[in-house]
């Protein structure tokens, strides 16, 4: 089964070597703790098992049909998982809050809004004539511009405080969704239909070219984030201490928000908004690693995300027999976890 072999290697390339490189360069004095080594080993095992199960379950001898198709799905799940995990961990550090996700603050709502506005203003026939890649590029660029400008403005130089940021972010997110809904309602039904197919692509129907471009962008973003791991560590001490330690706060935060916007557009373009996955995997990673080091937490959260998505998709296809979507499964589990997290925070 050569494709399967290739596959495991491909995923780990996106993840582990980058991690080890940063580990080594960031803190040569201290490697991983025993606990973290165990976590990595456990997750790697889970990853291999879930990928193997996903690729081989119920193939019924149609290998030449099933393997390439499933391989593509696994790559897509990995790309989306890493994008969501990394963007959430970074967002937690920038906002100094562990129960926020880029989604709660309206990042993916903004992507959907931009996509909808393009169809609304240009018309679906014009949009249909545009190459999907150009469309994705346009969408991503617009979304990154808007998101960075908006959240940069809300965040200011950090003196305004966190609660203003969260409040404005939540209100902005709701506003984006309302605007999108307004356009949905006034839109021609045919245009609405074509918009839905492009917007809410699912894991079952992944655009291959978009996948490779998205994967490339993701790699760029993730490498940048891992390179910034020491800065992220300093940022986790809070704004004032970060400034005292010589971090250019404004610049660093702007870059990080830009990368978060990029990662959110990649994952939203590939599979649509998946609200709670980031929250789920980031917090699980913190609980597993018990460290402040971003190189470790980013890698752990990414691994957890890939395992969750691959296993979830396998269950969806074979146990639930496609009755439902991966998004809805994630939202149910993520929602429950979120409520648990809020209750825990309230008691603490």
């Amino acid at each position: 089964m050569p494709p399967r072999e290739q596959h495991t290697i491909l995923i780990s390339q996106g993840d582990e070597p980058a991690d080890q490189a940063t580990e080594a360069s960031a803190l040569p004095a201290r490697g991983l703790t025993t606990r973290q080594k165990r976590v990595f080993a456990g997750l790697a095992l889970l990853l291999v098992v879930s990928v193997a199960v996903f690729l081989t379950w119920d193939v019924n001898g149609h290998w030449d049909f099933a393997l390439p198709r499933r391989t593509e799905q696994v790559v897509a799940l990995a790309v989306v998982g890493i994008a969501i995990a990394a963007s959430t961990v970074v967002f937690h550090t920038v906002t100094a809050n562990r129960i926020l996700t880029p989604s709660i603050m309206g990042f993916d709502a903004l992507y959907v809004l931009v996509a909808t506005a393009l169809v609304f203003l240009l018309g679906s026939t014009t949009v249909a004539q545009i190459d999907p890649l150009v469309m994705f590029g346009l969408n991503t660029a617009l979304m990154m511009g808007c998101a960075t400008a908006l959240y940069r403005w809300i965040l200011g130089n950090g003196e305004r405080g966190l609660y203003t940021l969260i409040l404005v972010g939540v209100v902005a997110g709701t506003f984006f969704m309302s605007l999108t809904n307004f356009m949905f309602r006034t839109m021609d039904p045919n245009e609405f239909d074509s918009l839905m197919t492009t917007l809410f692509a699912s894991f079952n129907a992944i655009d291959t070219t978009l996948l490779w471009i998205g994967g490339g962008l993701l790699l760029l973003g993730v490498v940048a984030i891992f390179k910034m791991a020491p800065q992220l560590d300093v940022l986790s001490l809070g704004r004032e201490r970060a400034i005292t330690l010589g971090l250019d706060y404004r610049r660093t935060v702007t870059w990080l928000l830009l990368i978060v916007a990029l990662l959110v557009s990649v994952s939203t373009a590939l599979v649509g908004p998946i609200t709670f996955l980031g929250l789920l995997v980031a917090n699980l990673a913190y609980q597993l690693t018990r460290t402040h080091r971003h190189a470790v937490n980013l890698a752990t959260a990414s691994l957890v995300a890939i395992v969750a998505l691959v296993a979830g998709q396998a269950i969806l296809e074979h146990v639930l027999d496609h009755n439902g979507t991966l998004g809805s499964i994630i939202n149910v589990i993520g929602g429950l976890y979120f409520i648990g997290l809020l209750l825990k925070e309230a008691r603490a």
Partner: peptide, 16 residues
């Protein structure tokens, strides 16, 4: 120790 090591950030930028 980790907190105190952060104090070295201006000099080392994360590489002690």
């Amino acid at each position: 120790r980790e907190l105190v090591e952060f104090g070295r950030y201006p000099h080392s930028h994360g590489r002690l």
